[in-house]
Design a protein around this nucleic acid. Structure first.
Ligand SMILES: Nc1ccn([C@H]2C[C@H](O)[C@@H](COP(=O)(O)OP(=O)(O)OP(=O)(O)O)O2)c(=O)n1
Ligand SMILES: [Mg+2]
Length: 527
DNA sequence: GCGGATCAC
DNA sequence: TATGGTGATCCGC
């Protein structure tokens, strides 16, 4: 009723694009959001999205209640939190360092740039890299129509009839990515990166060593790095120069496309720049936190400082400090402890919703094999296996298990994954399934299966050794020696036999209505 | 350790 | 007709 602001409000998708200026190509923001909305409405995706928005809004409401309750406690309470906030801000200010230089470099419309470089005919056309179901990125011409990363291709097509789609060539992007990383290493061997197309470089030492540790030198170095990239790859890059990693990243965004931006190493000017900044630009503020903050009346960084009492009450201390630091332009400016080792490996796939257990089983088997191969390459083992899925309603579910031992073999992973899948007891169709392994150790010496293999080759194994690698089939309880081949064959046979035995009496297996979980359920019924 | 959420690319 | 894949982290239990 009166509460509804018909035209002004978000039309129902958290990812509707709300920032940036209106497009100049005949499509304004309202028109774009209407097309997105009209295409999405009445889909399971949209329904799920709305539920999600409702949850976020509810969370924001309860935050607001907490705020008004707290603020009505009286002046003593206000004085108290004022004190605490003041302390935190003092602490933040004590962490403000203006002597370290960070240069963040990020390729412009990376995948699209590579494709356009290799096919110059695309240069003056709106281009999307991706397919009908998903766009990975779009060039700047397409972006003027509202087309952007993570937008489904069919919506992109509606926004711009002439949009040209290019299938992604990931190996090419990896190659180009490696080229720019080589360059980054020259300026900061410990540079940080969140993706193929970017690097956050702490260049303080480089600047000092080359006697250019001043504002001009800082900006000159950014130009040099971008030029090196251009020479080596023929691809455009943008850069941001600032006194900490977070600000440098924000600066890159201000410099785009094909440009760079320098944030002065000066407290007042930093605060001035940040005050107008939309909170969504803060690295770490995604669409959910943005929406939550918006609900609390916080849109820009200035609002964060203005509503510091409210935010202090609403958020946990750590989150409050994070927001306040960002608003003040203070961020960490030394490298984190080096984390080189990958902590998890995952594979997943989306497909037309299905309850066909054979198909799902095939994916899980394939993922297990591929993950096992990757572990072989890394000479690694894992202790944790997870299975994840999305129902046809886009509801994610997952189940994981940490074992008392390390494994790496395809079949070991597969077995656990199938067990976990069955334990999820999914009755609906699903549209997505994945397998993930974690708790990786990068060695195999002393691995249980190493010992097993050695013992297996021993012509006269001791009884006690046999015990350690004998295995019981969970289906038929038969005990047998472990070898991959035998296990595989045995399992397959057992599964087939059992799936027939456990065929439900009345319902017969039909082509169009396969009974999910029968095969796999029975596999574990006896365990 | 587990499961769900969030974020980044 | 139709909304991705990979890796990381954090929180509350
Ligand atoms: N949701 C996303 C975001 C990005 N990417 C891929 C495609 C991008 O080309 C690449 C780099 O991501 P960026 O966020 O840097 O975006 P772009 O480089 O495409 O554009 P920009 O000029 O804004 O940096 O990662 C993706 O697959 N899915
Ligand atoms: Mg980029």
């Amino acid at each position: 009723m009166s509460k509804e602001h018909k035209d002004n409000e978000n039309k129902g998708l958290l990812c509707n694009f709300t920032h940036e200026k209106a497009g100049m190509q005949g499509l304004d923001r309202e028109k774009i959001n209407k097309i997105i909305h009209d295409t999405s409405v009445n889909t399971e995706f949209f329904k799920r999205e709305q539920e999600h928005i409702a949850i976020v809004e509810e969370k924001a409401r309860s935050m607001k209640n907490r705020i008004s309750e707290s603020l009505s406690k009286g002046p003593d309470f206000i004085r108290e939190i004022n004190e605490e906030i003041y302390k935190i801000i003092q602490e933040i200010e004590s962490e403000r360092h203006l002597s370290e230089t960070w240069i963040h470099v990020d390729m412009d419309m990376f995948y699209a740039s590579v494709e356009i470089r290799d096919n110059p005919e695309l240069a003056d056309k709106p281009v999307a890299v991706g397919g009908n179901s998903m766009i990975a990125t779009a060039n700047y011409i397409a972006r003027r129509y509202g087309i952007r990363s993570a937008m489904p291709g069919f919506i992109g097509k509606k926004l711009c009839e002439e949009l040209v789609f290019v299938k992604p060539n990931f190996s090419k992007y990896r190659e180009e990515g490696e080229k720019i990383r080589e360059i980054f290493r020259d300026f900061d061997p410990d540079f940080e990166s969140m993706g193929l197309d970017e690097g956050n470089l702490r260049v303080t030492e480089y600047l000092i060593n080359n006697e250019m540790n001043h504002d001009e030198g800082r900006q000159e170095l950014a130009r040099i790095i971008r030029q090196r990239i251009k020479d080596k790859t023929q691809l455009p890059a943008s850069a941001g120069i600032a006194c900490n990693r977070s600000l440098a990243k924000i600066a890159t965004d201000m410099g785009k496309p094909n440009g760079q931006y320098f944030i002065p190493f000066d407290k007042e000017q930093i605060i001035e720049i940040m005050s107008k900044m939309n909170v969504r630009k803060i690295p770490g503020v995604g669409k959910v936190l943005e929406k939550t903050l918006n609900e609390l009346g916080v849109v820009t960084c200035k609002d964060i400082l203005q509503k510091k009492y409210e935010l202090y009450i609403a958020f946990q201390a750590g989150s409050f400090k994070f927001l306040a630091s960002a608003a003040l332009g203070v961020g960490s400016c030394y490298h984190h402890e080096t984390r080189e080792e990958q902590k998890s490996i995952s594979l997943s796939r989306t497909f037309a919703s299905t309850n066909n257990i054979e198909e799902i089983n095939k994916y899980i088997a394939e993922f297990s094999r591929e993950i096992s191969e990757q572990l072989d390459e890394k000479n690694a083992q894992i202790k944790t296996v997870s299975v994840s899925l999305k129902t046809y309603k886009f509801e994610p579910k997952s189940k994981s298990e940490t074992l008392g031992r390390y494994i790496y073999k395809e079949l070991d992973i597969y077995e656990i994954a199938i067990k976990l899948y069955n334990e999820l007891a999914i009755k609906e169709k699903i549209r997505h399934v994945g397998v993930r392994v974690a708790n990786i150790i990068y060695r195999r010496t002393g691995a249980i299966d190493d010992i097993i293999e050695k013992v297996s080759k021993d012509p006269t194994p001791k009884q006690s050794s046999i015990k350690c690698f004998s295995q019981q089939c969970p289906v038929c309880n038969k005990v047998f020696m472990y070898t991959e081949k035998r296990m595989e064959i045995h399992l397959k046979q057992c599964l087939e036999e059992q799936s027939q035995k456990f065929q439900p009496k009345v319902v017969k297996k039909q082509k169009n209505a396969p009974q999910p979980t029968i095969t796999l359920d029975c596999f574990y019924k006896k365990k």
